[in-house]
């Protein structure tokens, strides 16, 4: 166990090491704080007005999570529909895959027009950007089911619902999780994009307004929080995956019993 730890150091350790290297670089090269502030300055900025950062972080985080949750629920339902219905497949899946290749960031202004400058447009953006990855991976997972397993289900007179709940869905969970892990990072991108275009709150708003005032330290403070949020969300999902799918190949201990 100890050895494994060494080979794969915890994320937090890597994070701290990166910050230390950054700090050391700033000491050595003395860049202008307008170009690159040192971590020490960024932390001082964070502690100077914690209320500002907490409030805006919460706004961004809650919108991201709301959009992501919607993307997961609706994405998985769509995937089930696509796998089970030819009509839905032609109506939804092909356009979805085609649409996935257009830059969805460009849709942010449209969302502001439709949903206003409040949190709805941010949730909408997070949802829209995240759902593609989830639908595509979930469809893949639901489709790549062992044909013998389906044959077994059919010899046991399995209803379509039983086949879905007991065979297809559990088998698709690893793929759904990998879609979710891509989706959570994208949801954060969606929220921030929305905040860039029009907002009075959120970390994206903090970045835009600080950039306008040449407050580089504040920009970096918000970026630092964003990177922490993104990393924590990703690892929370990874942790949930390990807890829920201990059987999945990628998590198995080496000690298979034979």
């Amino acid at each position: 166990m100890k050895r494994r730890r060494w080979r794969q150091p915890p994320v937090a350790v890597v994070f701290v090491l990166l910050l230390l290297a950054w700090q050391a670089g700033c000491w050595l090269l003395q860049p202008s704080p307008l170009v690159l502030p040192s971590p020490r300055m960024i932390f001082a900025e964070l502690l100077d007005d914690p209320q500002l950062y907490l409030g805006n972080s919460w706004y961004t985080l809650s919108n991201t999570l709301a959009g992501f949750a919607m993307a997961v629920v609706i994405g998985v339902l769509l995937a089930v529909g696509i796998v089970y219905s030819r009509v839905l497949e032609t109506l939804l899946y092909t356009p979805l895959v085609a649409m996935n290749s257009i830059p969805k960031v460009a849709l942010a202004p449209v969302f502001i027009l439709w949903l206003g400058t409040g949190n709805q447009s941010k949730i909408g953006m997070a949802f829209l950007i995240a759902i593609f990855a989830i639908v595509i991976d979930a469809v893949l997972g639901l489709r790549t089911v062992d044909p013998d397993m389906l044959a077994l289900g059919r010899t046991l007179k399995g209803t379509p619902l039983k086949m879905l709940v007991k065979i297809r869905f559990p088998g698709a969970l690893p793929a759904i999780f990998s879609g979710m892990k891509v989706g959570i990072a994208l949801a954060l991108v969606g929220t921030i994009t929305g905040e860039f275009v029009a907002a009075q709150k959120g970390l994206g708003y903090v970045i835009m307004s600080a950039q306008g005032a040449f407050e580089t330290t504040r920009v970096f403070a918000a970026l630092l929080i964003l990177s922490v949020i993104g990393t924590v969300l990703f690892y929370l999902l990874e942790w949930a995956e390990r807890a829920l799918l201990p059987w999945h190949v990628s998590h198995r201990a080496v000690s298979a019993g034979h």
Partner: peptide, 30 residues
């Protein structure tokens, strides 16, 4: 598929997410 049929494949077709006991119980659930 007829009633009273048991099926064994070349590959065991056990479900990775079920314990051995739960795998054996699958026909009962279906």
């Amino acid at each position: 598929p007829p009633d009273g049929l048991g099926m064994v494949f070349q590959r065991d077709v056990l479900m990775d997410w079920r314990s051995i006991l739960d795998n054996v119980m699958l026909p009962v659930e279906f």
